[in-house]
Design a protein around this nucleic acid. Structure first.
Lengths: 330, 330
DNA sequence: GCTTTTTATGCTCAAATTGAGTATAAATCA
DNA sequence: TGATTTATACTCAATTTGAGCATAAAAAGC
């Protein structure tokens, strides 16, 4: 067999370019190409001739196509998952295999509002800032429980990802507790999405148009190909990273108030934080320094700060340890 | 231009298959193919026809070629870095572009000792279990300082990666301290290796044979192509993961003593830990349970434990928070 | 002008966690 | 038997967290 032939693939560089508009995290999307009016992430091919590294390749087409100033870029994951790409929806030939390398990029501005799509329209169950989202108890959990049935493995995975202990699974902490008791873990975005995909609760899980109509947009707005999975990966990574690296500042303007930092953090985490403790962490880690100026908004004016960009690249500074997300279980 | 032609690449799946033998972390290597007697990581091509996902492809050739039982597998990073691959040392044609996807795999056993290479022979500066390695002060740091010169950016990067503050860089904590003062960060393995690569302190940095002879094996045993970089990535990732996921148990036999867990953890971190505090963490997180049996070794017999494999896949349990690595700065 | 509302920020305090020990137990080795 | 080795129980001060109250400084309502 000619190895070189069957092993040859094309590489797509897909980017989840994230910003925060007001109190909503947003993600750059491209209009549409399929029949279903679903948005997609911007992507471009990788030309190994022209670009020494893939990150350089990615930055280049982002600059060319979006004219955005993205500072922070991080490789997320490489998906070689054929099953999800050649669903027939796209016009690619069968033997053109595509591997997609997902990237997370952060942008301080997000011009052209219509091209930026809010995270929580695609993942309504991930925003807990106003308490536990209704959609969980009303739709998602019941459907998932039906899907799991008495399958022990499936139930365990559900418990993990969606943070509850159910009556069918033995619990180490003595007698079985009523229902949700473990605190929601904001980092398991990808695990939850993958479970919903497996259970057929998201539009992308269906290859053909017939079934697609039925559940369209019921559990968040779908995206093209595996783009919602890449966005889920980006969300997981960013939520985790926020807790040990000072990446929030990649989303902030040059000068900002501490409350703005907190609101941005809360937007990404999808959870509210304790104000005083949040500021204590910022102070202890010496991540910001005052500019001397004050903001002029509604109440008492707040001091304006700037990021202490000690080491260049802001690479591995201590990071603001998130002072434990407020627990909201019900 | 024919996009499909220039964008077409071959994909190599490279694996850092890690185990622990005695008190040494080891990595599976393949004998050699080049002229320089340098070991390499095992790798195989990815055939998108045959394998639905890349991880399946990886597992398959690992099973075929090594007959090893690898449980835990994790994708590390995808390197599209042409500069480092087509150095002419390998016989590949110029227009055959290769992208390598690095994986970390963990194995409980490591038969055939000669095929397993000890981590710290490739990275002698990363093992701090017997204090700060001599090679740092005697060779590496001086060479790096020469390389950095008065370049502020380079000096900052050195400070970050190698944890010291030097007299040329301004220090926020008042007057400049003597020399090494920040604690060594065991997770920056990749950062340190990349700096040494840039500074020309490792064999792999040189394309041609002439210069290679000069520094061969001076700063650890070199590896083929970019394999030492992949191993550095694996070390960084594993050291980081150890602190929030119970992955150590992927390296332990079915029954083990608490000391064995600690020794394995210390081997990977390259640092000694406080015994009582380590056990307290294990106890608090309820990660292990007694088997009822005792070990028979030298001193007082220790209780044998097993891993509490609560949720299958041991996926996202709390993990043993490493009780702060003993600080050894000099 | 005075009060209410809003936002910012300083400060407290108990609970939990961490870092670093000491003390004692149970085996083997000489 | 007594030294040596290893395991494990327990202590304790210092620090870090989680959660709250109190006060300050502005704008908005009347």
């Amino acid at each position: 067999m000619d190895k070189n032939h069957t092993a040859s693939v094309l590489i797509d560089l897909s980017a989840a370019i994230v910003s925060v508009r007001g109190d909503q995290p947003v993600c750059l999307t491209v209009p549409d190409v399929s029949d279903y009016q679903t948005p997609g992430l911007p992507f471009g091919p990788f030309y190994p001739d022209r670009h020494r590294t893939m990150e350089i390749g990615l930055r280049q087409w982002v600059v060319e196509q979006t004219a955005l100033d993205i500072g922070y870029v991080e490789q997320l994951y490489t998906f070689g998952d054929r099953g999800r790409r050649s669903d027939g929806a796209d016009g690619k030939e069968e033997n053109e295999h595509i591997v997609s390398v997902g990237y997370l990029a952060l942008s301080k501005q997000c011009p052209q509002p219509d091209q930026w799509s809010e995270w929580y329209k695609h993942f309504p169950w991930e925003d807990w800032r106003n308490g536990r989202p209704d959609i969980l108890n009303k739709q998602i959990i019941p459907s998932l429980e039906t899907w799991a049935g008495t399958d022990e493995l499936r139930r365990l995975r559900l418990q993990q990802a969606f943070s509850f202990t159910d009556k069918f699974c033995s619990n180490k902490s003595g007698p079985n507790k009523p229902w949700p008791n473990k605190p929601w873990n904001d980092e398991y975005v990808l695990d939850r999405y993958e479970l919903m995909y497996e259970a057929g609760l998201v539009w992308e899980a269906f290859a053909d148009g017939r079934q697609k109509e039925k559940i369209s947009a019921q559990n968040g707005i779908a995206m093209q190909l595996d783009h919602r999975r890449i966005l889920a990966t980006a969300m997981s990574r960013l939520r985790a990273k926020l807790k040990y690296r000072p990446v929030v500042f990649e989303l902030m303007p040059p000068a900002f108030t501490l409350t703005q930092v907190q609101k941005t953090t809360e937007a990404i985490l999808g959870a509210e934080l304790h104000k005083q403790n949040f500021r204590r962490q910022l102070a202890k880690n010496e991540l910001v320094e005052p500019t001397g100026q004050m903001s002029k908004a509604r109440g008492r004016p707040a001091e304006l700060f700037k990021f202490r960009q000690d080491a260049s690249q802001s690479s591995n500074l201590p990071g603001l340890r998130i002072p434990s997300v407020k627990s909201r279980n019900f």
